[in-house]
Amino acid sequence: MKTTLAFLAVLAAFAAAPFALGPYYTTLIIPILAYAIALIGLNLLFGYGGLLSFGHAMFLAIGAYASAVMGAKLGVRSFEAQLIVAMLASGTVAGLIGLLCLRYTTIFFSMLTLAFGMIFHSFLFKFYDLTGGESGISVPRPSLFGASHAGLSKTAFLVGPFYWYALGLFAVMFLVMALVVASPFGLALKAARDNERKTAFLGVPVFWVRYVAFVLSGIYCAVGGAVLAVSIGAADPELSFWTQSGNMIFIIILGGLGQLFGPVVGAVSFTLLQDALMANTQYWRFALGAILALIIIFAPRGILGLITRALDWRRR
């Protein structure tokens, strides 16, 4: 009940945003939605599964490039088709890599995912014909449900039909994740995070539970990546660099690790924070790093953790 209300409130806020903020800020919100979708998936793996991946930027990039290659090279403009290909491609890659990476947990898992991420990054960089090399590929405007919206200007398309499309996508992906987390599968995943041995003893196939979480997180990141690519208008190799994976983890921690709304809260506050910092100082990375350090030390459950704590305190 509480979750449903909070979810409706989040949706209402996003739905009101274009009317309240005007086109410029609305274009800034689409990447927030894109990151929120991707991080909902990563949160399943890292927050609920306890597996810290330093390579998930790869799946973000797979989504972005799937959309770009389909649109620009193969002439498939339907965004639904692009999304399906993005999910299939990312799911396949995650399925293969997961078999290897999940033989490890803890730090070895992080390093192996980083290794795969870097291989993918150099792949994007070096194979110009397919990926456009350093400059990437620009993404042509996709058609949504068969409508090309050719009459609209770029901004009008983004803040109009595409915004609502992205919001709808976010709502669906969020609800699916809410169900996944509450399901026996979600419980098994959390149990394996807290005590792997006991969970295995209870008959849970720990490896496969984690495997499914890994593949799901890859698929979510690809969907987020495809949305992101359309909103920036390009897919470029920097999307897959290891620091990008670090930033994704940062956003989850900022919002609240292992909490359903963590990724959304994180994506909104990170974007606002970065925007405000960049407007005021060229040394915004330092400020971001310091904030990350402070959150880790003083508020390991992120902004949501702080809010919950404040509410509990008032109730007492």
Partner: peptide
């Protein structure tokens, strides 16, 4: 963060990477 989950320790060093980037600049 010594007693904490190693994910947090790793992220703490990542925070320093971000900060160093601007200190050097």
């Amino acid at each position: 963060v010594y007693g904490r989950d190693e994910a947090f320790q790793l992220l703490m060093t990542f925070a320093f990477v971000l900060m160093f980037q601007d200190v050097l600049r």
